[in-house]
Design a protein around this nucleic acid. Structure first.
Length: 227
DNA sequence: GAACCGATTGCCT
DNA sequence: GGCAATCGGTTCG
């Protein structure tokens, strides 16, 4: 028993309830949508809690999804994607960014949900400390900012998402409507509308949805074109 | 063991 | 709206 009881008691005071293991053992797209509104919490060694509600996710599923890391098959890196659901898949990108995913699907089938943005709820002071920026809106609006704010790095790869360090709590259906669109920041697989976010939520990442819109001259009246 | 790519961000104009 | 920063994983030799 390495975790003091008072730390565990802290979690019980949070809204919602722990997500059951079966939550992640489903179709990745469904998990991505259902994770919106859930609480993501990070507990540090000193007991400090940093929490936010998930406002944006993306689904990456199967070897036939060209944007999924499993598209090139099982490697030491992607092994966790093929493993049991409910673990964290953290990887390092662009030489400076960490990204947090939740492993989904049944054991043996690769899939993960990228957690792209949080609405900060608890421990904001600590999140601001971790990030150079202070603006609350940008504290965790983006997958790398989120990891910075919560202090998530490769040491948390394969950590259980119902563990003492990292855990999720379902809080029921979010009030805001769920919107969906193409995933961002990728060059392949943009045909799948597997990005989900809470409508009009200011904490959603500013990433452009889908392929860049074609510039068209702004005209008055007769500017509407078909196709 | 070297070349290449990338699920991004922040600073620049 | 453009683009540099920066390094782990993958692939190829």
């Amino acid at each position: 028993m390495s975790v003091p009881a008072r730390m565990l008691a802290g979690a019980s005071r949070l809204p919602g309830r722990a997500l059951p293991p079966g939550f992640f053992a489903r179709h990745t797209v469904r998990v991505a949508r259902d994770l919106l509104g859930s609480w993501l919490c990070r507990r540090e060694d000193d007991g400090t809690l940093s929490c936010g509600t998930i406002v944006e996710t993306e689904a990456y599923r199967g070897e036939t999804d060209p944007a999924c890391h499993a598209a090139r098959g099982r490697t030491p890196r992607t092994r966790v994607l093929y493993g049991p659901p409910g673990l964290a898949y953290v990887y390092f990108n662009y030489g400076m960014h960490h990204l947090l995913n939740a492993v989904t699907e049944r054991d043996g089938y690769p899939g993960a949900v990228l957690i792209r943005a949080l609405e900060p709820r608890r421990g904001l002071a600590r999140m601001m400390e971790r990030r150079a920026r202070r603006e609350p809106r940008l504290l965790a609006a983006g997958p790398s900012r989120l990891c910075q704010a919560l202090g998530i790095d490769l040491t948390l790869n394969e950590a259980p998402l119902d563990g003492p360090v990292l855990f999720l709590r379902g809080a029921g259906n979010p009030r805001a409507p769920v919107r969906s669109g193409p995933r961002v920041g990728i060059r392949v697989g943009t045909d799948r509308p597997w990005r989900f976010w809470l409508d009009a939520n200011p904490f959603v990442s500013p990433g452009k949805p889908g392929p860049p819109p074609r510039k068209r001259p702004r005209t008055r009246g007769a500017g509407v074109r078909a196709g």
